[in-house]
């Protein structure tokens, strides 16, 4: 493998590894705009991953496999919203419960279907979402390797970011979602059903998360194995939290986590003994990233305030406002 090819492959893996995180972040973004923290995104994606594998094997259709992944995600979203909005359970506890149920439940289903507890690899003839070569671009060195030959679902992740942006900022539903997220009383006062909007948000969020799950089991690999999400849902959640609900920001931050993930993988090959340590890198970066971002934000705020105060006391600031 030439050096440029190696670089290209590395860059390629960034996109591949970012894909599930982007879907997770977008799923979290939708609920965040509605004022909810979707902590169950991990469980949603895990369930969707299993559902995709099973139904693609059963129907022998890629499209149906992906659709059933989305459906499973929405179903979980629906369960959470029912428990939280109708049953009035605590949202975070509900989400934690969903994550735990998903871990145990998928393993149980796996065992019931295949008789093994590890993976569907040999037991289910599941399908793969096709990869696409982009004409012309694929022949450019590095760029071609990096951008061409990805799964349809990887390309769609970026389309999805745009669609989520469109939904939130340009549609009636999006306006209502933001209204519910910012001031539920305002929504109530004009007869918008907060319960309905939140439920819809959870259903859409579940479907988007479901795409991420389908990617994991029908593209990233072509089987389901227990706990295969390995925290990607949570990473996506934090990518979204750092960027405070912006779909574009969440996508970019997911890419950053993708880079961390890809770097860890490369280091894993060159330094096998450190593999477990290296595996921690994305998570360490997550925590450090959040701490540093917050520290910068606070420091900047303090510094800014300090400057503002000094200026105002010196009497140079906004003199015309005062008179």
């Amino acid at each position: 493998m030439s050096f440029s090819e190696a670089i290209g492959t590395f860059l390629f893996s960034i996109f591949r590894l970012s894909t599930p995180i982007i879907y997770a972040a977008l799923a979290a973004c939708i609920t965040k705009q509605t004022g909810l923290l979707n902590m169950a995104i991990e469980g949603i994606m895990l369930t969707a991953a299993l559902s995709s594998v099973v139904f693609s094997a059963l129907t022998q259709s890629v499209v149906l496999g992906v659709l059933f992944g989305m459906l499973a995600g929405s179903l979980i979203g629906g369960i959470i919203s029912y428990a939280n909005l109708i049953g009035k359970t605590e949202l975070y506890l509900t989400c934690i419960a969903i994550n735990l149920i998903a871990t145990g439940g998928t393993t149980f289903a796996l065992y019931m279907i295949t008789g093994t507890k590890g993976t569907t690899f040999s037991a289910l003839p599941s399908l793969e979402v096709p990869n696409i070569d982009i004409p012309f671009i694929k022949d450019i060195p590095i760029l071609g390797t990096m951008l061409s030959g990805h799964s349809i679902l990887t390309y769609f992740a970026f389309v999805c970011a745009f669609l989520v942006w469109l939904l939130i900022y340009k549609t009636r539903l999006g306006l209502r979602m933001r209204c519910v997220g910012e001031n539920p009383n305002a929504a109530l006062s004009v007869g918008i059903s907060v319960t309905r909007i939140k439920t819809v948000a959870y259903l859409i969020s579940g479907a988007v998360g479901g795409l991420g799950g389908a990617f994991m089991s029908m593209s990233y690999v072509t089987w389901f194995s227990r706990d295969m999400l390995a925290g990607r849902g949570f990473i996506g959640l934090s990518a979204n939290n750092i960027t405070a609900g912006s779909p574009v920001g969440a996508t970019l931050f997911s890419m950053l986590f993708g880079i961390a993930d890809a770097s860890a993988n490369v280091l894993q090959i060159t330094a096998a003994g450190l593999s477990y340590f290296v595996k921690m890198i994305p998570y360490i970066i997550t925590i450090l990233g959040m701490v540093i971002m917050e520290a910068i934000r606070i420091r900047k705020g303090l510094k800014f305030k300090d400057q503002v105060v000094r200026k105002a006391i010196a009497g140079t600031a906004n003199e015309k406002d005062l008179t």
């Binding site: 306006l175 933001r178 209204c179 910012e182 009383n185 305002a186 004009v190 007869g191």
Partner: peptide, 21 residues
């Protein structure tokens, strides 16, 4: 209401038409 039922980050027009957009 005594406490206003408005969404601060939206425009006046958006606030008024909420629900009947």
């Amino acid at each position: 209401h005594q406490h206003f039922m408005l969404v601060p980050s939206l425009s006046i027009a958006e606030n008024i038409v909420l629900g009947i957009e």
